[in-house]
């Protein structure tokens, strides 16, 4: 199965961290549910064009955090994650995206007020 993971080449965030966070986000948003299989380390390494060492590190951290489970000979699966955890993870994912947007805004030299106005305008647009 292909995972919709997009690695950012411009981010200073280490690759294993990006993978970890994106898999967590997929679990939080329900795109991956309990028991869903994850691609093998080698397969994901090939798809994302990074080394299997990096993927292994991301998987180990996810397993340690209780997000995924590996069973010998069967593969890696999404573990049971409780609702509170999912909410926290969802908040973190949203926070992360807003942070990125702020950094883009800063590159274009927008002030705090201008950013807030922009967000308000977008929220209003969505309501309509």
């Amino acid at each position: 199965m292909n995972l919709p993971i997009r690695l950012s080449k411009s981010s200073r965030e280490p690759i294993y961290h990006q993978i970890e966070n994106q898999i967590k986000a997929l679990i939080a948003s329900g795109q991956l549910s309990t028991g869903d299989p994850l691609p093998s380390i080698r397969l994901l390494a090939k798809e994302l064009e990074i080394s299997s060492i990096t993927i292994r590190r991301a998987y180990q951290n996810l397993e340690f955090g209780g997000f995924i489970q590996t069973s010998q000979g069967k593969g890696t699966f999404v573990a049971e994650v409780d609702a509170d955890m999912k909410t926290t993870m969802a908040n973190q994912a949203v926070e992360e995206s807003i942070r990125k947007a702020i950094s883009t805004a800063r590159q274009h030299e927008l002030s705090d007020i201008e950013i807030i106005h922009l967000v308000e305008a977008l929220l209003k647009k969505e309501e309509n």
Partner: peptide, 27 residues
């Protein structure tokens, strides 16, 4: 190399480099 390799070894002017982890090298 992108799809398969974990480590890279370069041959530069007759000298073989140490093993370099692909992602650490790129980063």
């Amino acid at each position: 190399i992108k799809k398969l390799a974990d480590y890279l070894v370069f041959i530069q002017n007759g000298e073989v480099t140490k093993m370099l982890e692909k992602d650490s090298l790129i980063f």
